[in-house]
Design a protein around this nucleic acid. Structure first.
Length: 297
DNA sequence: TTAGGGTTACAG
DNA sequence: CTGTAACCCTAA
């Protein structure tokens, strides 16, 4: 897993995901033009966004079109393999109310080594923070994971204490969770295992006001975007759909984090992010209604 | 402009 | 050498 060319910073990734959550995958130019992301993605082209999204999909274990092709080739040469799908075991609801989030992306735990490349200072420091956060968790070695306070304490002890650190840390943790580099379980963060599983969705952190708005919207949303996404899901096995949904929820949350981080137009951006989450809630409901024990396809 | 196949750069 | 991530090329 390389640290090759112009690596994407977690911020850029988050912005990309947020953009996809808002406008949908494929609307690269739109995402790029969105005043909320244009700043963070200013150095990336629409093609870059597309490629990055493809890479993310691949490493996420989600079947990106590309990975499928590669896998197919490998199988072809070795002439082996089936894709056994023991179908899942749990017909459980995806809608639990605790704060458990388990991202759908495995992703290796390789931290980004600091490169002394020619990148803006800002990006350098944030990339380093990611590195440090992971290091902190590793060093702390808490079996069930480490909470934000412990992580912050460790970092403050080992490194310099930036002024905006606490807030920055929270944002970074969210981003890392969304990226699959960390898993959050009951307020604690830990390094993800090699494989992924599906978790409940989180309903944390939103004001009752917001939640009401969401619940209210869920009942009467009818965007063409929704139909399009739901249509995609028809061809997925339940497992795939669940992973997809879990990932999407994480993305929506990143969108919210981004909205907070970018103080500018925060309200409007947050509203859009919430809308994205609303869509996801609808997806979840739809899935629960239609996913008998067997897959659709 | 976008999707997808191909290529390059780099880490393990 | 192989796998991964960023980058390039081109058809639609």
């Amino acid at each position: 897993m390389g640290a090759p060319k112009q690596r994407w910073t977690p911020e850029e990734e988050a912005a990309l995901k947020a953009g996809v959550a808002k406008h949908g995958a494929g609307k690269w130019r739109t995402i790029l033009r969105d005043p909320e992301f244009t700043a963070l993605l200013r150095l990336r082209s629409n093609v870059d966004l597309k490629d990055k999204w493809r890479n993310l999909s691949v490493t996420a274990g989600g079947y990106g079109s590309r990975e499928r092709a590669r896998v197919a080739l490998k199988r072809g040469k070795r002439g082996a393999m089936v894709i056994p799908q023991p179908m899942d075991v749990d017909g459980k609801s995806l809608d639990s109310d605790d704060n458990t989030i388990i991202d759908s992306k495995p992703s290796a735990v390789v931290v980004e080594s600091m490169k002394l490349e020619s990148s803006p200072e800002k990006e350098k420091s944030v990339a380093r923070l990611d590195d440090i956060i992971l290091e902190a968790i590793k060093k702390l070695k808490e079996s069930s994971g480490s909470n934000r306070t412990a992580i912050a304490a460790y970092i403050e002890k080992q490194y310099w204490p930036p002024d905006d650190f606490q807030r920055l840390l929270s944002t970074k943790l969210k981003a890392l969770v969304a990226t699959g580099k960390l898993i959050k379980v009951n307020q604690k963060y830990r390094i993800p295992p090699s494989s992924s599983s599906l978790g409940g969705k989180s309903t944390k952190g939103y004001s009752t006001e917001t939640m009401n708005a969401i619940n209210n919207n869920v009942k009467q949303l009818s965007k063409p975007e929704v139909d399009a996404e739901l249509d995609k899901m028809k061809g997925m096995s339940k497992e795939e759909a669940a992973a997809f949904a879990a990932k999407a929820v994480a993305e929506a949350e990143v969108a919210i984090a981004e909205a907070e981080e970018a103080a500018r137009d925060a309200e409007a951006a947050e509203a859009e992010a919430e809308a994205a989450k609303t869509f996801l809630d609808a997806v979840m409901l739809t899935m629960q209604n239609r996913n008998p024990a067997s897959a659709v396809y």
